[in-house]
Simulated scan of single mutants.
Amino acid sequence: MIRVLLAEDVRMVRGALVALLNMEPDMEVVASVENGDEIIPAVERNEPDVAVLDIDLPGMDGLSAAVRIHEVAPATRTLMLTSLGRPGTLRRALSARVNGFILKDAPINELADAIRGVSVGRRVIDSQLALSAWDSDECPLTPRELEVLRLAADGADAMEIAGTLYLSVGTIRNYLTTVTVKLEARNRVDAVRIARKAGWL
């Protein structure tokens, strides 16, 4: 039996997926959680073979959780489940070294096959998304610039970002100016919109 952990914040979707996956003859959902902060404790308690993680979760996001899973439970494979079919999101997932990436609107048999694939060590990527990622532009921002923009996107001002990152307010303003220029954005809000649309945030 393939032991599966499912992280999905929409209760109805989570319940349906648990029921459908438990109908597969070779799978058992050993844990299901709705908040990203619950993922690591659930992995440590249940030792799943595959963790199926929604990318956008309250608390810790799915990609950050995948990175942590690889550190604390290297035997557990990670499969990202998302409605965000953006090439940049796939690039971020690959950077996090996830084992698979599948869209939420895929048929249940494709999800089950993806779980089987990653459980035996294969990397499973939605084919259409892989093709679009191949043709898409690389993110022009450095990891630090992305970190600053992510905090700005969450509503933090320059002083709050400076306090969080232990940098000066002037340095943060310089980062935000550089980000705006690199993305050819009109302002900070437009930069956030562009980065989100590309899947870089």
Rank of each mutant, 00 (worst) to 15 (best):
L90G: 13
L129F: 13
V29E: 10
M12A: 09
S168K: 04
R77V: 10
R188S: 00
I172F: 06
S168P: 01
P25K: 15
E47C: 08
D61W: 13
D9K: 03
R14Q: 14
V10N: 12
M159W: 00
M80N: 11
R188A: 08
L81P: 09
I125A: 09
E44N: 09
R144I: 03
E147A: 07
I55K: 07
A65P: 10
A31D: 09
A51T: 08
V10M: 12
A191K: 07
G170W: 07
G15V: 04
A195W: 06
R186S: 12
L176W: 01
T177H: 09
L5H: 11
T78M: 01
E160S: 08
E34K: 05
V43S: 13
A195Y: 01
Y175S: 13
D37Q: 07
R193K: 15
A51V: 05
N99P: 04
I125C: 06
D154A: 15
E160A: 15
V67M: 13
V33Y: 12
Q128P: 00
D113W: 02
G155Q: 13
M60K: 12
V50W: 05
R45C: 05
G199I: 07
A42K: 07
W134E: 13
T171D: 05
I172K: 06
R14V: 08
V148W: 03
A73V: 01
I40T: 06
V169N: 11
E110S: 12
